[in-house]
Simulated scan of single mutants.
Amino acid sequence: MSRQLITFQLGDQVLGVDIMAIREIRAWSPATPLPNVPSYVRGVVNLRGVVLPVLDLRRRLGWGDTDPSARHVIIVVHIGSQLQGIIVDAVNDIVTIAPDQMQPLPDVGDAEASRFLDGLATIEQRMILVLALDRLVERTDYADAA
């Protein structure tokens, strides 16, 4: 069965996330830092009365830190039963991938980022890293961290 992905940029890399996991895409707004959270948790923002943890996806994947600016975007996604925000450089488009376009990740040893990916999709000469959202967060109650 085909699946639809929203694709986005993180540096020179194109990543994709299942469209059904996305609640909304919003402009960057500074996050309020929290003490005692993992280093990839940038902080929290208020989303219409809901406290939303914001993850620095670049840091989580082991690709350095994001230096957010007005051009960055927060993609609000469902991870498990909680809404989370992930910081990305820009949103690209929606693509549909057939099962035969999905490939497993090559065995490249103990690469940090590979544990957060479902595989690779090739569409029109583009390689898209497909994000496994459920593996991005440690099971932590952020409310306890504050």
Rank of each mutant, 00 (worst) to 15 (best):
M1K: 05
M1P: 09
S2L: 14
R3S: 09
Q4I: 14
Q4M: 10
T7R: 02
T7K: 00
Q9V: 13
Q9C: 13
Q9R: 14
Q9K: 12
L10F: 01
G11E: 03
G11D: 02
D12N: 10
D12Y: 05
Q13A: 10
V14Q: 12
G16K: 07
V17G: 05
D18A: 08
I19T: 14
I19M: 03
A21N: 12
A27F: 02
S29D: 15
A31V: 00
T32M: 02
P33D: 06
L34I: 13
L34E: 04
N36V: 14
N36P: 02
V37H: 00
P38Y: 06
P38Q: 09
P38I: 11
G43K: 00
N46P: 09
L47S: 11
R48Y: 01
V50N: 06
V50W: 01
L52R: 05
P53T: 13
P53A: 03
P53D: 10
P53S: 09
D56C: 10
R58E: 12
R58F: 05
L61G: 03
G62C: 07
W63N: 05
G64P: 03
D65R: 09
T66G: 13
D67R: 00
D67E: 09
P68Y: 04
P68R: 07
P68Q: 11
A70S: 15
A70V: 15
H72F: 02
I74M: 10
I74K: 02
I74D: 07
I75Q: 00
V76E: 05
H78T: 10
I79P: 06
G80M: 03
G80W: 01
S81M: 05
Q82V: 11
L83H: 03
Q84D: 06
Q84C: 11
I86V: 15
V88T: 15
V88I: 15
D89R: 03
N92A: 06
V95K: 05
V95D: 03
A98G: 12
A98P: 01
P99N: 12
P99Y: 07
P99L: 10
M102R: 12
M102K: 12
M102T: 15
Q103N: 12
Q103D: 13
P106S: 13
G109L: 06
A111D: 14
E112I: 10
E112F: 02
E112K: 06
A113N: 03
S114N: 12
F116S: 07
F116A: 09
D118C: 02
D118N: 03
G119I: 14
L120M: 10
A121W: 01
A121P: 01
T122D: 06
E124M: 02
M127L: 11
M127E: 11
M127K: 08
L129Q: 05
L131W: 02
L131C: 11
A132E: 08
L133A: 13
L133F: 03
D134T: 11
R135N: 09
L136Q: 10
E138T: 15
E138Q: 10
R139M: 04
D141F: 04
D141I: 10
D141P: 05
Y142W: 08
D144V: 10
A145F: 02
A145G: 02
A145K: 04
A145Y: 02
